[in-house]
Amino acid sequence: MIKVENLVKRYGDNYAVNNISFTVEKGKIYGFLGPNGAGKSTAMNIITGYIAATSGRVAINGHDILEEPDLARRSVGYLPEQPPLYLEMTVFEYLMFAASIKHIPKANRRAEVEKVMEKTSVTHMRDRLINHLSKGYRQRVGLSQALLGDPEVIILDEPSVGLDPGQIIEMRELIRGLAGDHTVILSSHILSEVSAICDKVLILSKGRLIAQDTPENLAKIVADYVMAEMTLIAEPQKVVDVLKPLDGVSYAVLPIAGSDRVKVTIRGNKDMDVQTVVSCALAEAKIPVIAIDTLAASLEDIFLSLTSGKLLEKEKAKGGENK
């Protein structure tokens, strides 16, 4: 569907996108995840042909975005970071204009515009000037524009920015509804969003693609330890005395103010059953355990550990070996 090979975009000595390659399969939802300035928008601008890469190539349905721009762009709908709107037009006028520059046949234009307005629920705003719309509605009009003509590939740069919580849920449902018939690439710096919608996550940091996998598989990468949180009834000092002799267990003890309980966070290696070891030891010392919560590695952890450069170095070392 989309093939991106060794994409590099350099501004002076600065690499906005540094050697990114990936393939996008039909009907799935892909998420670009990364902190601000990671190169998400730049990558999307290159894929849609708004800017050209310093080197590397992008092919959509086998058509190179720069060599056959006309054919390649026909199958792409794009919502950039800032919706590309003309403020002096009404919603309907704008969408009719967008439909005509996308070469949608004149006979179908009106029906097509009505359809996308229905999908993004902006029909009741059709005769308002875009200038008078709120950020959320502008975002939706921008999305309508990207959906015009039912393009096979839909690329959305931070689609839920500026939407209220209700609208964000609507937007997610809408995007999930697009999968199957359409291939969607979206970008976000909000982890829960990406893990909730996407089939596959591509993590970008400082212009590099540092990981790409399903959200579940990514969780396994960083989970080289197990963490749990326990609530106990005991004196903090007594808990420390019990936990101190245990091998391979690190811990933090925090008394809960105004009660006789303490909160303990424990951490052990992946291959040991840290919860069993700790709770047995506590049982021996007759310390009652009120609650145990396993803390699974969340996308947050993955994200932080990846983007902070720890895993990046690991990957680099691996790459070095391969060479």
């Binding site: 762009r73 026909r74 792409v76």
Partner: peptide
């Protein structure tokens, strides 16, 4: 300035 050129330049128009 308003980035609306992104609509034009990513459309099939030359």
């Amino acid at each position: 300035k308003y980035k609306s050129d992104q609509l034009l330049l990513t459309s099939p128009l030359s």
